[in-house]
Design a protein around this nucleic acid. Structure first.
Lengths: 67, 67
DNA sequence: GAATAATGCAATATATATGTTACGATTTAT
DNA sequence: ATAAATCGTAACATATATATTGCATTATTC
């Protein structure tokens, strides 16, 4: 589950801890999402987007593989 | 958790059952997502987008309420 | 290079997304 | 009007997202 959370987070100059606090989630959750080891819920994706000033497509969109 | 799944699904002429089968999920899950009663995972959101030929922003983006 | 901050990660616990089954309601076709 | 298809929803079971705690590793700063 690759994504651009880490890039976006660094662009707005936030640590995992700071981002987690703003969203109301733990640092571990942010860490695992950035490492692609979690499949986050839509609400959490939206909260992340709001915090980094980007849209879902910009942070989480993945082109369909086959066809 | 409002979204445009129902509109997008009807645009590509699929029933809840057909969409569910293509995605590999149950009809109930699609129903509850359309009614805004579920907070789907990112992977499921992506699978829905692929099935209806739209992007995350087109189907699931919600403007942040209070900036 | 030592101190501190930031991050990765593992084990266990809890909350919740999703599955299963079933039935009633609504829509569509005959 | 009846039959069939589609959809809404409830109860319970299961899978998994997230929390909690703790410690190890890497980066930063002095």
């Amino acid at each position: 589950m690759e994504n651009k959370v880490k890039i976006a987070r660094i662009q707005v100059d936030l640590t995992q801890q700071q981002l987690a606090e703003r969203i109301g989630v733990t640092r571990q959750t942010i860490s695992l999402i950035e490492k692609g080891k979690y499949n986050p819920t839509l609400k959490l994706c939206l909260d992340i987007c709001y915090a980094v000033n980007k849209t879902l497509d910009e942070v989480f969109w993945i082109e369909r593989k086959s066809d």
